[in-house]
Amino acid sequence: MVAGLLVMAFLSGLLGIVLVISARRLPADTMTVVDQVNGVLPHTQCGRCGYSGCRPYATAIAAGEADINQCPPGGDEVIVALSQLLGRPAKALDESFGLAGPPIVAVVDEDICIGCARCLDACPVDAILGAAKFTHTVIANECTGCELCIPACPVDCITVTENTSQLDARAAH
């Protein structure tokens, strides 16, 4: 009886010490709701949702200020993923923020480009290669198709086309 009590007391004491140490030493789970939401968004950084980028939108969603159907590039997939993550009902994309479509990529018409370098600053992912007085070009694999470079161009030399790049995703067969 006494021996049993002593063993249990010893074990619980030991476990308690282990728990205290691990709670202090091990890094806390820092994956906040904002991070999780941010991970689901497509990171085109286009700002069509009304926020300045994907992370601000994620922050607004987590705070309950924004709805989950404001991301046109993400389309239905992102809405479904967000509704599963947050337990909010899925709904159709709010088309006042824009229409969903296939992935697109920006193309610089090099005959028209005057090398003003204004689009370089507009690109949220540094996917435009160029310098003042040199023709610019878009790194197609890294362009997110956000279209933010289009209004920045003074000579309207940037257009968008469907993105058919395969990156290095291996073929499934």
Partner: peptide, 23 residues
């Protein structure tokens, strides 16, 4: 085919995030 396209989308978004953070 779907799995592969799914991979492509997540790869694109991971790349975009990396570039955005680097910027």
């Amino acid at each position: 085919q779907g799995l592969w396209e799914n991979h492509l989308v997540s790869q694109r978004s991971a790349l975009a995030l990396r570039r955005f953070d680097a910027r």
